[in-house]
Amino acid sequence: MMQPNVAVLFGFGINCDHETKAVFELVGAKADRVHVNRFIQGSAALEHYDILAVPGGFSFGDHLGSGRLLGNRMRFAMRDALQAFVDAGKPIIGICNGFQVLVKTGLLPGPSESASPDFVQRGSLSLNDSGRYEDRWVTLEFDPDSPCIWTKGMTRMDCPVRHGEGKYIMPSEQALDQLAHNHQLTVRYADPTTNPGEGLTDEPLPYPLSPNGSMRNIAGICDSTGLIFGLMPHPEAVYARWLHPHHTRHEAPTEANDDDLSGWEGEGLQIFRNAVEYVRSNR
């Protein structure tokens, strides 16, 4: 089977590069950790890759606003390569700090019509209302009608958030309405007591169900094509069931299935598999 090539960006304080590479490999891709400067200096070429992942971390220490400085490096030094990558219809994911980078570069949410990226910032991610960086598990619910190729078939999952600046903000209700209309509000924080499929709401959920006070409980958005996706929570950190805080509340493997890890796949892996399968089916 065809093995898509994934570029997992790292350097300058990105720190989820190892696990992001690992999850793509677990679903059959070939993934490289590529230092940002290798693209800028030209010792690596973005066009040779099928998928770009901007992992989580603390690029430049989040100073001057999370994602701002790395976003600028990409916006000014990798502009043409990124434009060509997007124009070629290749998927991009930004997780946590990577999402912040994609928002600050303007790749997310991007222009409203299917168009080439214009690198204009339209939204922002600001400090959590609590004022605190926190690591906590939240419940996410996905918009089933989202064009996002990364989240096909997903309804609900538990997932950790680990950020201090995850409050998604847009300057106007109209701007949010526009995204909602296009089903670009791909994933949102949900109340776990609601039924799966009925958790999406515009009404702000209380802390800590919404860990940051995001407008309309937004956890992640996609661009109008559905190829570029960013989210604050960390689906790569749910690649195995043993990473779920409740795993000891369920049965341990028995001798019969001891060697079989397949039953232990975590819910987050599907996001990465979706993109790999998208690339395979579009080749």
Partner: peptide, 12 residues
């Protein structure tokens, strides 16, 4: 809770 206790996706 303000420490990241699960970056690297390994904390079981």
């Amino acid at each position: 809770r303000q420490y990241d206790h699960e970056v690297i996706a390994q904390t079981a």
